[in-house]
Amino acid sequence: MRNAHCCLAMLPLPPGLHLLLREGLPPLPQDPPSPHPPQPAPPFTFAPRRLRLGPQHPLFEDGDVHRHLYLQGVLTSLEEVAERPKVSEFSCHISGCSQVFDTLESYEHHYNTLHRNVCSFCKRSFPSGNLLDIHILEWHDSLFQIMAEKQNMYQCLVEGCTEKFKSSKDRKDHLVTVHLYPADFRFDRPKKVKSGSKHTSSPREQGSSVPMDVSVEMAEQFQGNPMETGPEENMEISQPAASPGPLLPEKRLYKSRIPSTICFGQGATRGFKGPRKKV
């Protein structure tokens, strides 16, 4: 090792350094102004220089290696990881959602995934507030369509990009060509049905027409048993677009599910108060 001969444990430091650190340095003796030192006389070459070091400088090797040992988790010690506290089982308090949890973390994740960015009009859930805002604007703002005929209204979905487009198709082209999004990006499906029919989300319609979202009530209702009524969006993504895989027909068998407009019975979420988010 490089530092093999470094066997000194203590430096002979003067006392009182901590005090000076707190209170500042005393006035230093003023050195007499010395004539500027001559340039180094050959063969001597020393001249004071502040050094700028680049990333590959050998001086950095030991420190870089230490950093990477840390990243790779090799700096082991005796301390053990704290376990996540288990709590007694409890269920999600959102009406119609009966998911049960035994850690706060799993509840938090469930809540944030399904109940946080939920559209209050159609109860769909979105992965981010930005996508929810765009959804509400495009789907539930009555002025949107009128405005969209006059000017570019479809915002780019990429945070930090301010471009707007005439249609969602133009936006999709932009996402694919400029931002290298996959052509089947699942959070921007074109709106094919009229917004009036959005509440009657029959499986067929929902699967093919819902942009950006997941149907919250469907998903929850069948969470315990996803096989039989696996939400269609899962299937669509696993076998998207032009390449229907061999498993697709098999899955189509499992499409029946309770329309979300049904307001009674097990798993129903609609009543006088919808599953509004509360924070």
């Binding site: 998911q99 799993s106 994740h109 469930h110 995934t113 399904l114 859930s125 992965p127 699942r186 959070f187 997941v214 149907s215 919250v216 998903a219 929850e220 969470q223 996803p226 939400p231 969006e233 899962n234 299937m235 669509e236 993504i237 696993s238 076998q239 998207p240 390449s243 895989g245």
Partner: peptide, 17 residues
């Protein structure tokens, strides 16, 4: 074939777990 697509589908699904 389709392995990453399947994971992507589940990853973007609403089934939290």
């Amino acid at each position: 074939d389709g392995s990453i697509r399947t994971l992507t589908g589940l990853f973007t699904s609403s089934l939290a777990e």
